[in-house]
Amino acid sequence: MSDDLLVVDDVTIAFGGVVALHGVSLTVRTGEVFCLIGPNGAGKTTLFNVISGLLRPSAGDVRFCGDSILGWPPHRIARAGIARTYQIVRPFSALSVLDNVAVGALAFTSSKREARLQAREIVEFVGLGAQASRRASTLTLTQRKRLEVARALALRPKLLLLDEVMAGLTPTEMDAMAEFILELGARGIGAVCGVEHVMRLVMRISHRIVVLDAGRCIAEGDPKSIQADARVIEAYLGAPVREAL
């Protein structure tokens, strides 16, 4: 299948005795918005770390555009077209907002001036134009979230991994973020969003959803079928709902 962008194939990873991911598989296609939902500690961030090359799984394979990227160093994976944001925002505090973004743009140019020019556009695009020359440490949380996204976009990714982008945002900001994610598809960028809750938005933006619970995929499908899935309801509410009622 030529439009399979990312294939995660039966990935397992353990820390000491704790199995963080247990035979997780999923496929993301070009231009698709793929949501990874699950409670805190379900393994979403671990999966992102595996895909972006920060962690090496003990079993399984990760393929991107047909190539296995297992064992590639993070910078090579990034250059191949996978960008990510971090759940806990990690700006380069001492650098300006513009330079934060320019770092990503250096993947395609060895000129700092050219990288800054490209970064300028992206910074404007995410609405940080007024803050461009400020140190990243002076930004508010919402602005830092945007900076995370801006840095990732500077890599001109084919696939964007968004780790908990909704967390900490106000409802209005969430709507704006949802619009933004939908727009990615129009630009031909695949997106994987890790989301803990905010089901309303997940249902609106996703083409497909995988539900993770304690390191396992417990359900996969389109928004409608997920909403109806009893196991999902159980993972989220902790008890068989009908009996409790």
């Binding site: 972006s52 090359g53 920060l54 160093p73 993070p74 910078h75 994976i77 990034a78 250059r79 960008a83 990510r84 971090y86 990690r90 700006p91 380069f92 505090s93 001492a94 650098l95 330079d99 320019a102 770092v103 990503g104 250096l106 993947a107 140019t109 060895s110 000129s111 700092k112 990288a115 840095r151 990732a152 500077a154 890599l155």
Partner: peptide, 27 residues
């Protein structure tokens, strides 16, 4: 200080892991 190399160094100084996932060959 003016080069792309310097900017990459500053990025890895601030956060090596993040610099790596932003395509900086940190090693």
């Amino acid at each position: 200080d003016r080069s792309a190399f310097g900017l990459r160094l500053q990025a890895l100084r601030e956060d090596e892991q993040v610099a790596g996932t932003l395509a900086v060959d940190v090693t």
